[in-house]
Structures are given as C-alpha cells and as structure tokens.
Amino acid sequence: MNDIQKYLTPNREDFDKDPFGYSALARHKWGMASTIAGFPIDITKPATDEELKNPILWMSQAHALSEAAAAVLSKDQKFEVMPPPVRSACDSQYCAVGLMLVGYSLEICLKSMIIIREGVDGYRKIEKKTKHHRLHDLANFIPDLSKKEIAILRGLTHFVYWAGRYPDPGSGKEGEAEEIFNISEKYKVSAHDLFKLTTKVMGHAQTVAAEL
C-alpha cells in the first residue's frame, strides 16, 4: 500500500495517537481524494469557504453522524457503574443522545441539499437564515411531508437543541419537555416511524442531485 492509499484508509491507530488531529482531517482527506479524481485542491493551504461548502463533504458528515447514531441506538448498555434505581433514567438519556445524533445527521443532510439546490454562492446569501437546528423548517422543500412527519422533525429538533445534551431545556423553557410528550402521544410516534422518515429525508438527496 502506497502512502496515499494508506492516508485515505481509515486507521483507528492514528486516532489513538492523535484523536484531535485525526478527527479534523476530513477536509484534507477529501482534498486529496478530489485531487486524485482530477479536481486539484491544495491541502497545504487553509481551506477556502467554497471547499468547506462542498455538498459531498457535507453528505459524508451526515453519513458519519447517521452511523454514529446507529452505533449508539443498537447498543444495549448496562450502566453497571450507576446505582440500580438510576440506570433506567440513564438509559433514557443514552437514547436521547442517539436521537440527537439522528437529528444532527438530518440537519447536515438537509443543509447539503440546500447547497446543491442553491449552489455555493446562492447558499452564502441565505446562510444566515439556515443557521439553526429547526429540522421542520429546513425540510420545507421536501414534498409530501405529512403532519406526522413534520411533527417528528419538530420532536427531533428538541433533542438537537437540548434534550440530547441536557436534562433541562433552560429556565423559562420547561414547557418544551412536555411538548416532546405531546408530540409522541398525539402522533403515536414509533421507532419505525422515526427511521422511515430518516430514510425518506436522506433519500431525497438523490432527487435533488438529479435535478441539476
């Protein structure tokens, strides 16, 4: 294996040696892969705004987040270091982290589709309007979303903003905790519903790309 192939091959030993550096190398590795494909990017220089807004790089990030979410939610933790009465609470919080990752993956995927639709220059003009995590707003260009699907996106938005990171939405926002339960009960949201919508949203990227 030559040096370039080695550099472009996932290697967790490199992560063990330098977790920050390894985890921040996506742009450089993408630049090298792009150069090999005939689209030169000088990775010896700081990244440009246009490079960092490459929708393929964003789609790759969305996929990484999706895989991270799957890894979390498919693992049944025991929480043995926690006192037995607290383990169930910790498991709910653990699943909340998984939903946060699902929400982040959808957010990045939706924003990458907006970049594809608008182009980098066009996206710059509306970027301030998209600097939020409101999935139900970001997804307004996806056709045929049902009221239940929009409600699911609203629910995931809570996990991105606070419920996947804190037990508390913040002073004066305590009602947001109840809103999650209201969405769940009103629309009878199941894990199947959640992941079916995730597949639908991410799958729309192919439609967006085909429209170019």
Rank of each mutant, 00 (worst) to 15 (best):
M1G: 10
D3L: 10
K6F: 11
P10S: 05
R12I: 10
F15Q: 00
F15V: 00
F15K: 00
D16V: 11
K17E: 09
K17T: 10
D18W: 01
F20G: 09
Y22R: 03
Y22L: 04
R27I: 12
K29P: 05
G31R: 05
T35S: 10
I36D: 07
I36H: 08
I36G: 08
A37T: 05
P40K: 04
D42M: 04
K45S: 08
K45H: 07
A47N: 08
L52H: 09
K53T: 12
I56H: 13
W58Q: 07
Q61G: 10
A62W: 01
H63P: 09
A64K: 03
E67W: 05
E67K: 08
A68P: 07
A70K: 13
A71K: 14
S74K: 07
D76N: 15
K78P: 09
F79V: 11
F79A: 08
E80I: 12
M82Q: 15
M82I: 11
P84E: 09
P84M: 05
P85E: 13
P85R: 10
R87V: 02
R87T: 04
S88L: 14
S92P: 11
C95S: 15
V97A: 13
L99R: 11
L99K: 09
L101V: 01
V102G: 06
G103Y: 01
G103L: 00
Y104N: 06
Y104E: 05
S105M: 02
L106D: 00
L106K: 03
I108G: 02
C109I: 06
D121P: 02
R124T: 06
K125E: 14
E127T: 06
K131M: 12
L135H: 00
H136I: 08
L138I: 03
L138Q: 01
N140H: 12
P143W: 03
P143G: 01
K147M: 08
K147A: 10
K148D: 01
K148P: 03
K148W: 05
E149T: 00
L153D: 03
R154N: 07
T157V: 04
F159K: 04
Y166R: 12
D168T: 08
G172D: 04
G175A: 07
F181Q: 13
N182C: 12
S184A: 14
E185V: 14
K186S: 14
K186C: 12
Y187R: 09
A191T: 14
D193R: 07
D193N: 11
T199M: 06
T199S: 12
K200G: 00
K200L: 02
M202E: 13
M202Y: 10
A205E: 05
Q206W: 13
T207N: 10
V208F: 00
E211G: 10
E211S: 14
